[in-house]
Simulated assay, not measured.
Amino acid sequence: MNVAPLGGTAVQDHVALAEIELCGELIIAASAACGERLSADRIDEVLQVSDGYEGGVGRDISRP
């Protein structure tokens, strides 16, 4: 069995840390919602994502 040394190096998983931060933001937003469900739009706002529609213009779904 391999065990990390006591003075070992710290490994940072930046993707995991980002996911944990986003989960925290969702928890904060849900707590502030006073028992109501978060809408999909509110979740997108908290996570700072877009559905691809900017200014009423749809994205071209024929291209990846």
Score class of each variant (00 low, 15 high):
M1I: 11
M1D: 06
N2R: 14
N2F: 14
N2S: 05
N2K: 13
V3E: 13
V3W: 10
A4T: 12
A4N: 08
A4S: 04
A4Y: 08
P5D: 13
P5G: 11
L6H: 05
G7W: 01
G7H: 04
G8R: 00
G8I: 03
T9K: 03
A10L: 11
A10R: 13
A10P: 05
A10D: 11
V11E: 12
D13R: 11
D13N: 15
H14P: 09
V15T: 08
A16E: 11
A16V: 07
A16D: 04
L17V: 06
L17K: 04
A18D: 12
A18C: 04
A18M: 07
E19K: 12
E19C: 11
E21R: 03
E21S: 14
C23L: 02
G24P: 02
G24T: 10
G24W: 01
G24I: 01
E25R: 15
E25D: 14
L26D: 05
L26H: 14
L26M: 15
L26Y: 01
I27Q: 13
I27G: 04
I27S: 06
I27W: 00
I28G: 03
A29T: 13
A30Y: 00
A30C: 02
A32W: 00
A33M: 13
C34W: 00
G35L: 14
G35T: 09
E36I: 06
E36H: 12
E36P: 00
R37I: 10
R37E: 14
R37K: 08
L38A: 10
S39T: 15
S39N: 06
S39R: 15
S39E: 10
A40E: 14
A40K: 12
D41G: 12
D41N: 04
D41L: 07
R42Y: 02
R42T: 15
I43P: 00
E45H: 13
V46A: 00
L47C: 09
V49D: 04
V49Y: 01
D51W: 03
D51C: 09
G52D: 10
G52S: 10
Y53E: 06
E54S: 05
G56I: 05
G56V: 08
V57T: 08
V57E: 11
V57Y: 01
V57P: 00
G58Y: 07
G58L: 03
R59T: 12
R59W: 06
R59C: 11
R59G: 07
D60R: 09
D60T: 07
D60E: 15
I61S: 10
I61L: 15
S62D: 09
S62C: 03
S62Q: 07
P64A: 13
P64M: 10
